[in-house]
Write a protein that binds this DNA or RNA. Sequence first.
DNA 1: GTTCACGACTAACACGTGTTATCTTCCATG
DNA 2: CATGGAAGATAACACGTGTTAGTCGTGAAC
Lengths: 356, 356
Amino acid sequence: MKKVTSYDVASKAGVSRATVSLVLNGSTAVSISPETRSRVLEVAKELNYQPNRAGRMLVRGRTETLGIVVTDPVLLAVDGFIALLLQAVIAKSREDGYRVMIDYIGNDGQKTYRDLINEGAVDGLLVISPRVGDADLLAVVESGFPVVLIGSINHPGEVSSMIQTENAFAEIVDHLTGLGHERIAYVSFGPAGIAAADQRIEYYRTALSTKGLEYDPALVVHAAYSARSGKIATSRLLQESDLAPTAIIAGNDTIAIGVLSAVAETGLGVPEDISVVGFDDLPISTCLLPPLTTVHHDIVQRARSAVETLILRVRGQPTATRQLELPTSLIIRESTGPVRESAYQRAEQDQLSRKR
Amino acid sequence: MKKVTSYDVASKAGVSRATVSLVLNGSTAVSISPETRSRVLEVAKELNYQPNRAGRMLVRGRTETLGIVVTDPVLLAVDGFIALLLQAVIAKSREDGYRVMIDYIGNDGQKTYRDLINEGAVDGLLVISPRVGDADLLAVVESGFPVVLIGSINHPGEVSSMIQTENAFAEIVDHLTGLGHERIAYVSFGPAGIAAADQRIEYYRTALSTKGLEYDPALVVHAAYSARSGKIATSRLLQESDLAPTAIIAGNDTIAIGVLSAVAETGLGVPEDISVVGFDDLPISTCLLPPLTTVHHDIVQRARSAVETLILRVRGQPTATRQLELPTSLIIRESTGPVRESAYQRAEQDQLSRKR
DNA sequence: GTTCACGACTAACACGTGTTATCTTCCATG
DNA sequence: CATGGAAGATAACACGTGTTAGTCGTGAAC
């Protein structure tokens, strides 16, 4: 149960500690006789020898560890996209021989990035959902320390992975207008400054104007990260807007769960009364009621390529592209359908039915 | 941008490296003059000095790092309970000054526990959803290395955190029978050997027999971890069982999402035709259609106390209890309701309507 | 017989830290 | 003045590893 060191292996194999190290690291600079090599390997396996991490880190100056930093702890708990991403990141890191340390940016004033880097805890950093204007992160990116962003902070020097959001929203709005929708609401998520969320609002507007639809600020509401917050925001939207929307685009699938819930609670049906579109195509989206029309993108592939790029940067090798943008495609399920009647007509009808 | 060592601080402050270390670690064994102390602190802050992790680990023999091991990678991606737990574990660890390394047991033959321990990567291990019969884990537990289980492997020496499942199922079945339900199905999750899942099946049976209900193996189906797998299992259940259940208990809320979806797809209503009960009371469960009747337990508190216990063990301090069992309570929402008609009558009616 | 080359191995250093035993200085006490 | 003692600082070791410069034979070439 005592920890076994390279010295133990050396003495049991009757060689020096240096020899053990050379054999186990497969060094070619110095030649070792086949007999010695096999003997060392045998003893190492027999003693279950595993090089001490601290010793190796110290002498090599690298940790073989990647840091995953999430910009809000609650993302870990309630966001299905993050969960999926995280699993793929961990799996890929492990495949490539890296361990993973996970941390988040809290509101407790801990300077996460600097600490992780300065204490030499990680070789590289993967930042999930970075915020534009995060001074600490900006400093790290500019310092040249290996960082890959899942998201963006709009810095020319960043290495980041995004998706083709513009195309996605064009497809969504195309699909909806094709079904006759003209009043299309949007439920955003997270605080301002999250590139993915900001982009989505922007391209929502762009897509509307491309179709000649007017942008109505009353049709855009903001939620946090949870389904529940999406539900609350949607309830507000449905109560407040003078002319109810006939379609709602959710910033992501988790928010869409809340949207579906709020719509149902209002007594309206999906898609008969209101069409709902999600974003991310989480595994769960086929199990929603009704199954969700949503934007698909390859989250696992995105995670894997981000880790791959990060490892390249850690090793000082050149990376093919700095800003990656992965494709998206709209998956049409059952939460979207044709407009049955104009929203205006329904509003009138609604008032009539209430008078009875 | 170069890394700053204690030597840099020492030379700039005009003292020896030893003095720097003594000041920064607040050692009381050796007295340091107040002027020297403040000067060192000042310079350290100015240079943004952070003790190198590897150096410290090496000399101290501890890593100030906890390892979180999940027994199946997919748990990270699709299980809402795990996500919630994970966030709380990371938060609590960070509060107490520990970093967190995350890994999983894959099917690639890597002996995760031993590796993490032997290479000295972690001071303690938190194992989420351990499997009974995992020989590696058993060996670790018996070795005395600090381990805390979220779950159980039924080993007398384990330190683990469970919940009062028996009471929970008594409450569920009490609630359902009170509504007139007699044919109550159960959708389990995960592979055999997960204590939490096995316990639930066991206490499902116990609760049934307490109420004088007969256990029907045809009413128990097995899913994996995802909502989709829950959906598939439920569809099978609804198609195959000769006499359809009037209520379905899902092994957890994630599975319940799939159950709701499957029931809806069959054209049945919840709770009019079938009542559904979940387990875990995830944040999302209020946003399901309909809002889910489910078993609440304090996941965050469970995570925090597990981490606290683990840290006590790491520091060699005695822990109050080895096997913790936290309370549960049934939250009644809208997915459960009275039986409208007997299932047998409906089955007959169903055949009639098909003949038309 | 000397030189050279080469294979096989090892002594020794470096990495950055925490801590203990030791050293210096200075002052008080006999 | 000698002695003791304490405060204040540091030299030196240990932690476990990777790697380079160097040692030691041994056989071949001239």
